[in-house]
Amino acid sequence: MSPKPRVAVFKMASCDGCQLQLLDAEDALLELAGAIEIANFAEASSRLEEGPYDVTLVEGSISTPEQVEQIKEIRAVSRFLMTIGACATSGGIQALRNGRDLAEVVRQVYPTPEYVRSLERSTPVAEHVKVDLELTGCPVDRGQLLGAIAWLLQGSVPRPPTTPVCIECKRRGYVCVVVARGEPCLGPVTRTGCGALCPAFARGCYGCFGPSQPPNTEALARRFLELGMSPVQVAEKFRFITGYAPAFRETAERLEREEASAT
C-alpha cells in the first residue's frame, strides 16, 4: 500500500455504534489520521471525496433498494472492502423482521408507515457484493478494528479469531454463569472478540460477535432446555443481535417448529 492509503467509511442501515468505536478512540484517531488519509467519513468530517479508496469500511445492513445500488457503487471504487459490525456481517437486529410480514412490522414500529420504503429482508453486505474482511460484533471491538487497520497498513489481512467467547471468559478468570448459576449463555457458540463483556458482569453472552468456528448450537440448545427453558425461549436466545446468521437461525427455526408441533 502506497504511503498514505485513502480510507472511506460508509453507513448503511445501522445505529452508528460501530463508527463511534472509531470516533471515540481519541488517541488512536490522531494516530490514524497520521497514518491514513480519511477520504470519506460523513460522521467525522465534512470532507467527502470521490473514490477510488484503498480501504473502505462499511457499517450497517442492506435494507432498502437504494442501499443495494449504493453498495455496488462503493464496491466498484474500493480496493479492499471491510464490513464492520453485526448489521453489516449478519443483517443485525433489523433482520429480526426477516421471515415476518414486513407490512405488519412497519405498522407496529413506525407512526407513519407510508413513508417507510424497505426491502423484504435486512441482509448482510456480503450477500450483495464481495467482502474482503468481516469484523463482527455489536459494536465491533475497537481494539480489533484498529488492530485490523494496523495490519492492513503492514500489507497483511488479519484473520479474526473464530474460537468461542469461553476462551476469553476463562483467560480473564470470570466464573461461568452456565455452570455456577444455571443460566443460559451463548458464549460457547459465539466467536470471541468482545473480551467476554457480559460474563464479566455475571450475565450470559448475547452472541453479538456471531457464530464461532462451526458452532454446536444444537448441543447448547439441548443444555438450555435442560436448564428449564422452553423451545421458544431458547429460540429467542439465538434470534438476537446476530440471529440471522445461518447457524443461529437454523437452530432457532428448528426449535420454533418443535414447539409449534408440540402444541
Binding site: A150, P164, I167, K170, R171
Partner: peptide, 25 residues
C-alpha cells in the same frame, strides 16, 4: 461445544498462541 473450557481450567494444559500486534504508524 468445542468451547475450550475444559482445557482452560485444566491445571496442566499448557497450549498457547503467540500473537503479534503493531501500532498504526
Amino acid at each position: 461445544l468445542t468451547c475450550t473450557n475444559c482445557t482452560m481450567v485444566c491445571p496442566t494444559c499448557f497450549c498457547n498462541d503467540v500473537v503479534d500486534g503493531i501500532s498504526l504508524d
